[in-house]
Design a protein around this nucleic acid. Structure first.
Ligand SMILES: [Mn+2]
Ligand SMILES: [Mn+2]
Ligand SMILES: [Zn+2]
Ligand SMILES: [Zn+2]
Lengths: 135, 135
DNA sequence: ATCTAGTTTATAATTATTCTAAAGTGAAAA
DNA sequence: TTTTCACTTTAGAATAATTATAAACTAGAT
C-alpha cells in the first residue's frame, strides 16, 4: 500500500495526516494479510516497532475513526476486549481460544443451505459465522 | 419447573439454596421460553418483581456458578455487556440491533452445506451463526 | 511568519466486572 | 433445641477497558 493510499484512508476518515496517525495507518494497512487486533495489542506492537509512545487516547480515536469510515471492522470475540479487523469485506472467522487468535474465512468458503424464517417486519442485515476451534 | 428442579439446579452448581439464590434461580428457570439477559437487566427485573434488592455481587456470583455448571450459556453480542442465555443447547441467534434483542434459532433451522478446511492440528468445537437484523 | 482549527496527551471519569472483608445464616452436630 | 462454623451476603473498594476533559501543541491555510 502506497503512501498516497494511507493519506486517502486518513482523509476519507476525516483525519488530517499527522505523524501519529500516519504511523498507525501505515502499521495497520501496509500489509498483505488481514490483521486482527485489540487496542492493547496494537499499542504494544506500535511501541515495540518505533519506540515512540503514542497516547492510548490517540489510538482509540484513530481506530474508531477508521471503523466509522469503514476502513476497519469490529469482530465479536468472547471476552472483555474489543477486536478490530483490517478485513472489511463480508467474511467469517475461526477462533482459536487456545491462542486467542482469529483466522479469516472467505465468505465463499461457507455456504448456508437452509435459513430460518426471519421475524415479521425484519430483514437480514448480514450473517456471521463463527467457528470455535479446539486441539 | 418444579421447586425440586430449582433445588437440583442449585445443588448441581455447588450452591446451597439460600433465599437469594432460590429467587434468582426461580426467576431464570421457571419459564417456558428462552430468556436472554445481562446482569444489569436481570438485576432490574428482580428488583422490580420483588422489591428485595439482592446485591449485585450475589447476582454475578450466582449467574457465573450456573454458567460454569452448564445451566446458562453466554452469548457474544456487540457491545460492552455480557449476555447470558437460559438455552444451553446448541443453537443460533437473530440479533435485532434496534431493540438489542436476541431471538433463538433452533440448530436444525440452519444447515451449513460447505465448510472451510480447518487449520492444521485443530478441530471444530462448535459453529455459531449470528444473523443481524434490520427493519 | 502568523494564525487557528484541529490534534495530542496526561489525566480524570465512567462502566462493567471482580475482589475483599466484615456481618449474617443454613444446616450439621451436640 | 442450641451451638457451631463453613458458607453467604453485602457494601464498598479495586480493576480494567474505554471515553471524556482540557491544556499544550501543530498542520496547513492565509
Ligand atoms: Mn467481545
Ligand atoms: Mn460482547
Ligand atoms: Zn477477519
Ligand atoms: Zn439463545
Amino acid at each position: 500500500m502506497k503512501k498516497i493510499d494511507i493519506l486517502k484512508k486518513l482523509r476519507s476518515s476525516g483525519l488530517r495526516p499527522t505523524k501519529q496517525r500516519v504511523e498507525i495507518a501505515k502499521f495497520l494497512f501496509e500489509r498483505e494479510k488481514t490483521f486482527h487486533f485489540t487496542v492493547e495489542s496494537l499499542n504494544k506492537l506500535l511501541s515495540k516497532k518505533s519506540g515512540s509512545k503514542i497516547a492510548l487516547a490517540t489510538i482509540y480515536n484513530t481506530v474508531h475513526a477508521f471503523k466509522t469510515a469503514g476502513h476497519l471492522s469490529e469482530v465479536e470475540v468472547r471476552g472483555n476486549k474489543t477486536y478490530f479487523d483490517t478485513n472489511v469485506s463480508n467474511h467469517h472467522h475461526f477462533y482459536d481460544s487456545e491462542t486467542s487468535e482469529l483466522i479469516d474465512i472467505d465468505a465463499n468458503d461457507i455456504i448456508i443451505q437452509k435459513l430460518p424464517k426471519v421475524p415479521n417486519g425484519k430483514k437480514i442485515k448480514n450473517v456471521e459465522v463463527f467457528i470455535n476451534l479446539k486441539n
